[in-house]
Amino acid sequence: MTQKNWLKTSLEIAVIVFASALFGIAWNRTLLADAWRGAPAGQAAPRQSAPGSQQVEALPMPIALAQVKELHDSGQAVLVDARSAASFAKEHIAGARSLPLEEATRQATPQLTGVAKDAIIIAYCNGFSCHDSMDLGKLLIKAGYASVYVFEGGLPEWRDGGYPTTGGKQ
């Protein structure tokens, strides 16, 4: 390939990457602005719910291990375990409270006693293959909690990080 051809290809690649980046950032501007501010989950990237429904479903924002640890240590967040009560009793993130998805679904609009509606809530379950925390997060947003996050790495990532867990009861 001649030098001229390489220059042309490089220029094309730069244009494609730049245009895609520009379009992607413009398309997701609200999500990016919220992520930059660390804004409440309810405002980020709402997506349309089932066809025929006029409601726009708000999704909890994902949150990474480092941020969970920081909020946990500073006592700024309430960690909510979406797994079953038995799993919670066996082992859970130190300081977390239990709200199994099954129970929350039964309640429809689950309430966390003593937790303000504007408190930072982080739902977790058994890691990335587990979707209960995301489902619980959605229910909590529906129930009026404004700052709901989902820690998708969940208990396995927390434990692997060497961070404290409690439990041991059968």
Partner: peptide
């Protein structure tokens, strides 16, 4: 953390364009 969102915003559009 924030760059995960930037990647999530840009990468799919790059994949789609290509």
């Amino acid at each position: 953390y924030f760059w995960s969102y930037v990647t999530a915003a840009v990468l799919p559009f790059l994949e789609l364009t290509c």
